[in-house]
Design a protein around this nucleic acid. Sequence first.
DNA 1: CCTCATGGTCAACGGCTGTTGAGTCACACG
DNA 2: CGTGTGACTCAACAGCCGTTGACCATGAGG
Lengths: 198, 198
Amino acid sequence: MPGSPDVHRLTRDDRRQRSEAAILAAARQQFADAGFERTTIRGVASAAGVDPALVMQHFGSKEALFAAATRMPDEPVWGPGTSAADVPRLAIEEVLDRFEDEEGRDTALALARNCLTHPSATTAVRDDVMCDRISTMAGVIGGDDAELRAAVLNACLMGVTIARYLLELPPLASASREDVTRLLEPALAALVTAPDAD
Amino acid sequence: MPGSPDVHRLTRDDRRQRSEAAILAAARQQFADAGFERTTIRGVASAAGVDPALVMQHFGSKEALFAAATRMPDEPVWGPGTSAADVPRLAIEEVLDRFEDEEGRDTALALARNCLTHPSATTAVRDDVMCDRISTMAGVIGGDDAELRAAVLNACLMGVTIARYLLELPPLASASREDVTRLLEPALAALVTAPDAD
DNA sequence: CCTCATGGTCAACGGCTGTTGAGTCACACG
DNA sequence: CGTGTGACTCAACAGCCGTTGACCATGAGG
């Protein structure tokens, strides 16, 4: 299934890496579309044009394949000059970039699709993505309830992401990126500006 | 497994309804905890103290059992005197009520847990819950982008719900209901008040 | 050119699942 | 007191899944 027709002119290592990449791409797509339980090793292998046993030889188990397919690259860290007022816009841009990037999009979708039903995806989203984002964000916005405010902000962002890219809720899925940002930014801004007194 | 020890003193119809209720309760709990794919008919039957075949006789299929276990009661409709300013608080209260009500809580959790991976749960959440809420809410808040604003509002609310009750994100899961409402309400308020001009 | 390591395939196993049809037992009814 | 209806159980089937071990072919190394 790999593109180049003269596959035989490739070194063994290249062939191996090509197979692995094809399997990984097919796995990401199916994990993202159908979820962990409904994607089968046989289905992934068939989409990648290889034998099911090869998938096992490369990744060891379906669990390990899922872990490899959903490993997220580190996010860019915010510069030291970031102020609380910048947080909403930056957070929105980061998330939309993640889910609209042609390459790497399926990784995020595969992780998100399974975050409610697959134990290791739940842990990855809760501990590796959300908690990290929340603690660094809380450090920037400061004030009382900083952690809780950051948590609510990220939860809202996650909800919009899920509705737009996973549920495909009509008004949100078809809205332009600019409209989403324009409406969401003031709402999240209300979360970072502490009201001091009631 | 039903409580009363003198089960033999019950009419046949009562026994039947008791079995059905026990199966439904066990199914809701397992669908909510483990998701559709990881719950088995055998497991539900065992938790309900009945034979697996009885589950089939009552509900016909696993799919039908899931549909019966996740059927949500209608939401209370908003009175005609509801103003846009009331929308955020009302929406928050409704959702928190749904997920904290002792009885009926598992129904909402079972539906939410599977809304990303089970086709009919996806449809139910998107079309039967979210779309209805959005259109009635859009009618109340009015203005430009009313539908989109309502969609973003409900998406945020859904995100907080997922983070709090499903992911159990530490700062949100352990926060008090009052704190969540206090922080979330102004953020959602920013979504219903149109900024008229840019 | 010979040889071995290695990427890749094939066929099969064991286990678990949803589902079914025959059979059992107690209760309601005439 | 028969008798049949309906709730309930038992055992089994068929299919799909992840996983494995034996096997093949081909390219690298001497």
